[in-house]
Amino acid sequence: MLSINREQKLNLLIIVVILALPSAALWLQEPFYITLMTKVVILALAGVGLNLALGLGGLVSFGHAAFFGIGGYVAGILASHAFNDEWLFSFFGLQVSGSSSMLLIWLLAIIVAAIIAAVIGYFSLRTQGVYFIMITLAFAQMIYYFAIAWPAYGGEDGLSIYVRNQLLSLNTADPMIFFAICFILLMAALALVSMLRNSHFGAALQAARQNEQRLAAIGIRPFGIKLTAFVISAAITALAGALFADLNRFVSPDMLSWHTSGEIMIFVILGGVGRLMGPIVGAALYVLFEYYLGGITEHWGLFLGILLLTVVLFARGGIVGLIAGELKHE
């Protein structure tokens, strides 16, 4: 028998709205709103990544901008070499070219971010609480300053992507097609996180958040579980970074800065920590505030701050929790 709870109804509604808005914009011939919704979808994807670590594992990573930025730079660097027809690197006769293939860029973004997340996680996951927050922040800032000091790829000025990267034979420059690509990836990531959450691994991961002592006592080493989650989380956020670079056709150290880490965390907290669709709601609200209130006043962040404060104080399950009630296991 198929039964559907309140949160699942809300989730369906959210998906319908995300699909309906760009379709309406297309019909009204307002491509700008398609792009705005694409931004929501991409930022939501970054949040979905963080939500795996933060929401399920309780890992308050304040360094996810590192992975977002790495995804962006992988896209930017490969694309710029492909555009200029230069070798990416040439090493004892082994010559590797750049690429404007999205599939290749995504794959590389995921691999590079996963490797770096494994290193960052290996050190930071030995600590807890505020130390974990600070170490993830420190690693991300290291990468940020590295990007600023790397003139080959624009340094502080960033790097432009002159032509949007290619996927199969699709016209990726068409806003609706690019939206669809991002939307499908978001849905795939949600399916992945949903699968992980309900799996044996997910049960252990959520147990690590609740009580590590107990987890170890039943023979499950919390470190390995948390590291695995951290790496998958980083890979998802890196994929979002690669898409974000393609959306803006530009990547800069801003993507790596601690502001970005904070923004990704805001998506998760606003929407609802550990809620499947939380990051989508959070990212949508954020973009809504940035665009509409940002058009009225440059102090729009103040209103976002008030909203965030209200959610943290009065609705610990975020907006999703407020509507769908408390989180249930199984």
Partner: peptide, 25 residues
């Protein structure tokens, strides 16, 4: 204990730990 989990789920996770099945995704 794992306070968010049901009593059964607590024990299920222990069985899972015993079997070494915690990386099934």
């Amino acid at each position: 204990l794992l306070l968010e989990y049901s009593a059964l789920r607590n024990v299920m996770l222990a069985v899972q730990g015993f079997r070494g099945a915690s990386y099934q995704m």
